[in-house]
Design a protein around this nucleic acid. Structure first.
Lengths: 196, 196
DNA sequence: CGCCGAGTTGAACTGAATCAAGAAACGTGG
DNA sequence: CCACGTTTCTTGATTCAGTTCAACTCGGCG
């Protein structure tokens, strides 16, 4: 079966040896999701960590007024899961949805634990992923606390230039914690400053 | 030497065996910090993960207007570190400061890696800590995106009831992403609703 | 006693939300 | 390939939550 995108990513990672990669690829499934398809809904337990081989996922919540709030995006070569749910076994409060037709590799939490127990290299690999995740979350919190809307938008652009063209503007607004109208105005303001 | 608080915490953790605990306690140092003392400043590399045996730490950043923003608090039995710095080796952009006279256990990143390599149980322990950290950060982001100031305050109270009395109000305001005046008004509003 | 940091309060202000409407882009079926 | 409805984006008018600035109180502490 064609697990090339995932295999290539794992191979490029220095921490992992052939045996570990083989074992991981054996135990993980893969599945195609059409644009708009939902991989996880509130109330469900998140069973997998998703690796995005192709396409784009987003995680979002719904507040009590029915408003969506984007927690994160995951384009190619990113992992996405609701760790609150998949690791701690709680019911999730989030949606995970495919924003494009996507090829997803699915890893079960128990297999991650097993691999960690058997391969120190995999434990370090996993450790690195978690630290990376924490780094992003921390930077985002700091930005939400410190920066006005425009700066958050600028940081978003420089961190995720590709998403700018793949994701509708109102979702970016949601990710930034402002309304679509708000982001529209921020953009107009920026543009007007630029051409005098 | 008296490493009892840390030993007790580690012993109560199911993942860890005696040998691992012994090794960890051997390699980690301990130090007392007075109230107000700074454990990490911007520009430095964060060399340690801090375990709080007694006392209270906070991590905060300074924005370009000189305003403080509290990233997190760490009371007894919590770990604190700037993982962006200690793991990725970058210079930190945060302060870590003791809010009370504190007894701190210091663990070096390299020792964590070593323990992970030698003890699968420790890898799982570490894994759990990281997942816990991620869970908190994610919940906070969701709250910052979804909830108005008052709800964020209510969540803070129910999550960290003890901090309410140990931390000055203006720091809690900073943690919540509002001004001290803002929080003062929120509290007045809540109180007035309560006694009619 | 006097000082200083913490908390409160009021008045004016502001960044962003809301509401409503129109324009542009997009997709789908005929 | 066009026609249609739907979604996205923009714009304006209004409202609102929360900020800013300044004054005042309170309690602890040298």
């Amino acid at each position: 079966m064609n697990n090339l995108p995932f295999r290539a990513f794992l191979t490029s990672n220095m921490d992992l040896e052939k045996a570990e990669i083989k074992k991981l690829l054996e135990t993980c499934g893969q599945q195609e999701f059409a644009k708009g398809q939902v991989l996880l809904s509130p109330g469900q337990k998140c069973q997998h960590t998703f690796y995005v081989g192709k396409g784009l996922l987003r995680q979002y919540s719904l507040d009590n007024k029915g408003k969506e709030h984007v927690l994160q995006f995951a384009p190619e070569e990113w992992f996405m899961t609701d760790r609150e749910s998949s690791y701690f076994g709680q019911e999730s409060i989030y949606y995970i949805e495919a924003l494009e037709d996507s090829l997803i590799f699915l890893i079960e939490e128990q297999h991650i634990i097993q691999l960690m127990d058997n391969f120190p290299g995999f434990a370090e690999f996993n450790n690195k992923l978690l630290h990376n995740h924490i780094r992003h979350l921390q930077q985002r919190i700091n930005s939400l606390l410190s920066d006005p809307a425009e700066q958050r938008y600028l940081k978003f652009i420089s961190t995720y230039p590709d998403l700018l063209v793949r994701v509708p503007q109102w979702m970016i607004a949601s990710y930034l914690g402002i309304t679509p109208e708000g982001l529209s105005r921020v953009r107009r303001e920026m543009a007007s400053r630029y051409d005098h």
